[in-house]
Simulated assay, not measured.
Amino acid sequence: MDTLRIGIVGLGRLGRVHAENIACKIPGARLTAACTTRPETVEFARQLGVTALYTDFDRMLSEAEMDAVAVISTSSEHCRQIAAALDAGKHVFSEKPLGVNLEQCLQAQAAVERHPELTFMLGFMRRYDPSYAYAKQQVDAGVIGTPYLVKATGLDPEAVVEDAIRFCKNSGGIFLDAGIHDIDLMRWFLGSEAEEVYALGATFKHPEFRQAGDDETGLAVFRFANGAMGSIHVGRTCPYGYHVETEIVGTEGTLRISAVPEKNLARVYGPGGVRAECVASFPERFREAYLLEMQEFVDCVRTGRRPGTTVYDGVRSTAVGYATTEAWRTGRPVKIHLP
C-alpha cells in the first residue's frame, strides 16, 4: 500500500492535532474524509484539503474513499464506531478510553477479534513519548532493579475547566477520563495487573462537577498481582498549567519523568525571582507522542506489523478504571476482576 487513506471522526481539540498530523506530517498517509457535528470545525478540515465532509459517521463509512478510520469522537461513541468501521473493512486507530464501561469494551474486543486481517491500535500515546519510552527501556534493562511502586500525577489546567465541565457528563467519570493513561502506564511499567483499588474524590472550586455526578480531583491507590503498588492523583483545576509527572520506584533506584512540567529550557529572571513557564495543555506536552503514535499506526497498516498497544490494553485499563470509579463512588476498596 503506497498511501493510506484515512478518514477521521471528531475534530475537537485532540481531533485537530491528529487531523493535522495525518494531513501534513506523516509520510504514506492522506486525510481524505472527516466527520464532525461542529460547524466551526468544517473550515479547519477544508484548510487541510479535505473535501469529503460528513455529519453522519455511518454515511462517511459507506461513501468516503478511505482505508482506515481515526476515531477521535466523544468517549461514549468509541466502541460503536470502532465496531462499525472494522465491520466495514477499515483499519482503525482509536483514542482513549476504549469505552466508558466494560460491556462496550468487550463489544469492541469482539469486533477486533472478528477481523484479524485488519489493524487496530489504541491511542495510549504516552508509551510513544520519548521520555516515557526511555524510562521503559531503563526499567526493562534493570537499571532501577525491580519496580515496585508507580506514582502518577495528571492535572488539567484551570484555563480549560469550562470544557471539562461540559464534557464530564459523557466522560465516564474523572478516573476513566483523566486517569486512564496513568492506569495503562502502571500496568506497563510494573508488568502486572491491578487487583484492588481504593479511591477518593473532592470538589472545592467548581460545584458543577458534583452536580453532574463527577468530581474535580481524585486520588486512587492500587495493589498489583505481583505485590507492587501504584497511586494516581488526577485533577481538572491546576492553576499554573498542565502538570503531568510519573515516578517509578525500584529496589535499586528511581526514575522520574517530567518532575518539573516545563514549557522549555528558558528561565525568566525578574522582580518576582526566577520563573520557569509551565506547559499549557496536553497537545503541547505530548505533541511529539501524538505524531509518533499515528506514524506507528500508519506503518503497521502498510507493513502488516502489529501495534504495541492493543484492544486488550484498552479492555484491561478500562476494567481498572471502572473499578476505580466504583471505589470512588462507594468509598470502599474494590477487588478488580479482569475479563
Rank of each mutant, 00 (worst) to 15 (best):
M1C: 00
L4F: 08
I6H: 07
G12Q: 02
G12S: 00
R13L: 06
E20D: 13
E20L: 05
N21L: 04
N21P: 01
A23K: 01
I26P: 01
P27Q: 12
G28K: 10
G28Q: 11
R30A: 15
A33T: 02
P39Y: 14
E43M: 12
F44E: 10
F44R: 07
L48C: 03
A52E: 13
A52H: 13
L53Q: 03
T55D: 03
T55S: 11
A70F: 03
S76Y: 03
S76Q: 05
H78L: 03
A84D: 06
A88Y: 02
A88F: 00
G89N: 09
H91Q: 01
G99Y: 02
V100L: 08
N101Q: 06
Q109L: 09
V112Q: 03
R114P: 00
H115L: 06
L118F: 03
F120M: 07
M121V: 00
M121N: 06
M121P: 01
G123R: 08
Y132I: 05
Q138N: 08
D140T: 04
G142C: 10
Y148T: 02
A152E: 01
D156Y: 14
V160P: 10
V161T: 11
E162K: 03
K169M: 07
N170C: 02
N170Q: 13
I174Y: 02
F175P: 00
D177H: 15
G179P: 03
I180A: 00
D184Y: 11
R187M: 09
F189L: 08
E196P: 04
Y198F: 15
A202N: 13
T203W: 13
F204M: 14
H206F: 12
E208N: 05
E208H: 04
Q211M: 09
G218K: 09
V221R: 06
I232G: 04
V234Y: 04
R236P: 10
R236S: 00
C238V: 06
Y240N: 13
H243V: 15
T246N: 08
I248E: 00
V249A: 04
T254P: 05
P261I: 09
P261V: 06
E262A: 14
R267V: 15
Y269M: 13
Y269Q: 10
G270M: 10
P271F: 10
R275V: 14
R275K: 15
C278Q: 11
R285V: 08
L292M: 11
E293L: 09
E293N: 14
E293A: 11
E296C: 15
F297N: 07
R306T: 12
P307S: 08
V311G: 00
S317N: 04
T318L: 13
Y322R: 11
R332K: 14
L338R: 05
